[in-house]
């Protein structure tokens, strides 16, 4: 078996009496999309925060390409190649689409301490940003103000900013959130192609997308992973059906 790119080993997080993560272990292998599903309150967001560095687990560890990153803050993990997208778009709304992508490229370059040269006339940054925008289909909207593009385009921009980091792994928090049928289909196609660049840990409520995209699915209930397997295995698992999928499956 190939070594996982991103791995959680027995991470536990308590908020008072609530156990938000209950000994969660899961991994993300090269080339795959690993979906994490579960009802609201199952602990998916807490899991993402611990994978990305926003929260420190009470117990357990997080590994990125074999290195223990449990003690590293968000920005250090980002520099090591962990790119995340946000459930609610976290973009500079006053800036243009291109400027948001350049921000990602600047983060990747690690050289924000330049004061007098124009950021957008730096061809290295600009090319990197434009390549990411082209990849997600936003090249024509590069000059638009982010506040003025559609919700769907902002979701695409989230992915583009993550792409500028040339990441080793993606962690995506509900990239389909708020998208219509058409938008979801386009996003699904985009993510389908991205797994070749870096594996994706995908937290998503859109079951059609999950079943189309996922190589593996983990189901979380009450802070614990109750099942991990292929889409077919998860669909067939009686415990999963009872806990989460209900009649929809």
């Amino acid at each position: 078996m190939t070594d996982p790119v991103l791995e959680a080993r027995g991470i536990t997080k308590r908020f008072g009496a609530l156990v938000a993560s209950d000994g969660v272990s899961l991994d993300l292998r090269p080339g795959e999309i690993h979906a994490v599903i579960g009802p609201n309150g199952a602990g998916k967001s807490t899991l993402i925060a611990q994978l990305c560095g926003g929260l420190r687990p009470d117990a357990g560890a997080v590994f990125l390409e074999g290195a223990d990153v449990t003690a590293l803050p968000v920005r250090a993990r980002a520099r090591k190649g962990l790119a995340r997208t946000f459930q609610i778009s976290a973009l500079a709304m006053e800036d243009t689409v291109l400027q948001n992508a350049v921000l990602g490229a600047l983060g990747a370059s690690g050289r924000p301490w330049r004061f007098l040269r124009s950021a957008l006339s730096d061809t290295e940054l600009r090319d990197r940003a434009m390549a990411a925008l082209t990849r997600v289909g936003l090249a024509d909207f590069a000059a638009a103000r982010t506040a003025e593009v559609s919700h769907g385009q902002r979701r695409q921009l989230e992915v583009a900013v993550a792409l500028t980091l040339a990441p080793r792994a993606f962690v995506m928090d509900e990239p389909m959130a708020g998208l219509g049928a058409e938008g979801s289909a386009a996003m699904t196609d985009l993510l389908d192609g991205l797994r070749a660049e870096a594996p994706i840990l995908l937290v998503e409520h859109d079951m059609d997308a999950v079943f189309r995209l996922a190589d593996r699915v983990s189901v979380m209930v009450n802070g614990a992973v109750v099942a991990t397997g292929s889409v077919a295995e998860i669909r067939a698992d009686p415990a999963v059906r009872a806990a989460y999928l209900g009649d929809a499956a």
């Binding site: 980002a78 995340r84 946000f86 600047l106 690690g110 007098l116 124009s118």
Partner: peptide, 30 residues
């Protein structure tokens, strides 16, 4: 100088730090 700084990498990052600090962290900046 102020005009130049506003368009510079630092200006872009500062502007984003005001709007969405979480985004800066997510791309590896402080």
């Amino acid at each position: 100088l102020s005009h130049l700084v506003r368009r510079s990498p630092f200006g872009l990052v500062l502007n984003a730090a005001r709007q969405v600090p979480a985004r800066l962290e997510a791309v590896g900046l402080d």
